[in-house]
Nucleic acid binder design. Structure first.
Lengths: 340, 340
DNA sequence: AGCCGAATTTTTAACGTTCAACTCGGTCAG
DNA sequence: CTGACCGAGTTGAACGTTAAAAATTCGGCT
């Protein structure tokens, strides 16, 4: 039924024998028009395959219905595999809120900010999502200064009065693991962490200390927390070091699945059975965790996306201030079931 | 210098003492306006921080300057890690062509097509990129029928007269590996592949057969090609099977880095040194390949993105028909250097 | 029948940009 | 000397939609 050229609201109006505005009302405020008229219009819409023109709508209502997010180059960061899921979550949450997701590629943070400003100033997007935000990240304040609405995944240190962030509570994630292992009867619980000096790693390490202490297990687990590079080999080495001790831990908490995978190998190399002799828990719930039957801490990525979009695109007006620290979820698998 | 509300072309015109159209010309066809006037306009643009309104431009010129691509949910497919890089490549190539990338999330292929149609009909995007296209994929023909411009990553079987695809030559990828190994002096070269019946896997297996034959190595390598699930454990098992034979291969080609990683373990378990006693090559050049010092075949993702965008957004008119089969590149690492 | 207010629909006027047609002064060939 | 032509800019209209105001219809009530 499509006519030549794109179908406009005017075509529908003619076909249904009403004015353009009535068609517009049917599309936007259906309750405002009499059911009989509405049906006539709707069937004309269906007949002609009418789709409201986005640009015209955006121009008139000065709202593009879009949010933007930088896509970083392929990285070897630990966040690499979250990338995908995060973008998917954003796209999905955005859709639910009637916003589409625009991606842009830039080299560095400076260009990222410039691009965000340009996108917002040109009315291409309503706001932007920041990503991989670190404590002293320069981006948030630059965006605030430029008046760019944004919400970030990752806390930033500025007083969050005008805008917001959503983050995952790393300490709580590890704390949950320790709780779980303690509940399973473990007393000596080791920790394999990242090198000191970065927030994520330090938070996870802090979660171990705090929770071990709360359960009175810290004394019996002296120096059972070690830190090192986030690689498989380093995980294996650190685990081996702990398991060779006289007071070897009966359970190991790792700050990443990579470290945990290394530890798994170390356990096997010693002729021990993971989950039986030594409990093991990883972090991030990567695909490999599932393959290895490894318990792991899962970040609530879909909810993060939802929260970000929710804050960035509130039904009414401007960006809502948020500061949401979400709790990750422990996925228990064979590597850490209750002790026999 | 920003005034209240968004800065429009009219504001700039007033500031520069010219008409709106002249400002427009400065932005779009700078050579059409006298240098003196141009400078005056440009400095007004800079002063006011003017950014042309995207919606208005899109409306007037009926071109949104966008392309769309579905983002699939996090998958355990082998393509999972390509996702990221591919989207980045698209975004980057798009930017170079003055197009932005829009992402959308849908459940299934049917919804994907419906969304693409909607996006194009509403003028939100000029065209769409298809992804993970398999030989008898229903999407290409549906999109052709709906008149949606698209280019796909992955061949489709329809006669590609009206539209196009870009793909990577899997057979050539494996062929290159075999060439490399043969040049290193290997005669018995094994192959670890995916289960039969899927194009990617079959193409890779075919590359082995063809190239082994061309080098006259097929006779001496009878049944040195095995197929199995694409998992680490399966790779280890298959490799073990081959290496335990009397006529054990001196080199192994795997259809994925996952299989190769498993094979690596099998080699080590036998007390052999990878790269020394047995050469190993994986496929896809995942981050793990680098970590494991494993040679691997790298898909030219950035170029794929460039080619797709190039076909989808030609400077002048409609989508160019393309059918580009790109050659992947072998990245040689320690696991397959020249034999001592 | 006639009139009021509510419900429904139409008219008017933008939103910011660009295309096409036009003005204006000057040049240049015939 | 005239008229076609050129470069540089301006003016008016249009792209498709929607908010606000104006106009029409309708049901109920005297």
């Amino acid at each position: 039924m499509a006519k030549s050229g794109p179908v406009t609201i005017a075509d529908v109006a003619v076909a249904a024998g009403v004015s353009k505005q009535t068609v517009s009302n049917v599309m936007n405020y259906p309750e405002k028009v009499r059911p009989k008229t509405r049906d006539r219009v709707l069937s004309a819409v269906a007949d002609l395959g009418f789709q409201p023109n986005r640009a015209a709508r955006a121009l008139r209502s000065s709202s593009a219905g879009m949010i933007a997010c930088r896509i970083e180059p392929v990285s070897s960061h630990s966040l690499a595999h979250l990338h995908d899921g995060f973008l998917h979550a954003l796209a999905e949450a955005g859709q639910a809120a009637g916003r589409h997701l625009m991606l842009f590629a830039v080299d560095d943070a400076e260009n990222e900010v410039a691009t965000c400003v340009r996108l917002v100033r040109s009315g291409a997007v309503e706001g932007v999502v920041l990503y991989n935000v670190v404590p002293d990240d320069p981006r948030p304040s630059l965006l605030v200064d430029a008046g760019v609405p944004f919400v970030s995944f990752g806390r930033f240190s500025d007083s969050a009065d005008a805008t917001g962030w959503v983050d995952v509570d790393n300490a709580a994630g590890i704390a949950g693991v320790v709780e779980h292992l303690a509940a399973c009867g473990h007393q000596r619980i080791g920790f394999l962490g990242f090198p000191e000096g970065h927030r994520v790693g330090d938070d996870r390490a802090g979660g171990w200390v705090t929770t071990m202490d709360r359960h009175g297990l810290l004394a019996g687990s002296h120096r059972l927390d070690v830190r090192g590079e986030d690689t498989w080999i380093s995980g294996a080495r650190m685990a081996r070091g702990l398991l060779d001790r006289a007071d070897a831990p009966t359970a190991l908490v790792a700050a990443s699945d990579t470290l945990a995978a290394g530890a798994l190998q170390a356990v096997r190399d010693l002729g021990l059975t993971p989950g039986q002799d030594v409990a093991l828990v990883g972090y991030d719930d990567t695909p490999s965790a599932e393959v290895l039957d490894l318990s792991s801490v899962r970040q609530p990525i879909p909810e993060i996306g939802r929260r970000i979009v929710e804050a960035l695109c509130p039904p009414d007006g401007t960006v809502l201030p948020v500061a949401a620290l979400l709790a990750p979820e422990l996925v228990v698998r064979g590597s850490s079931r209750r002790r026999a």
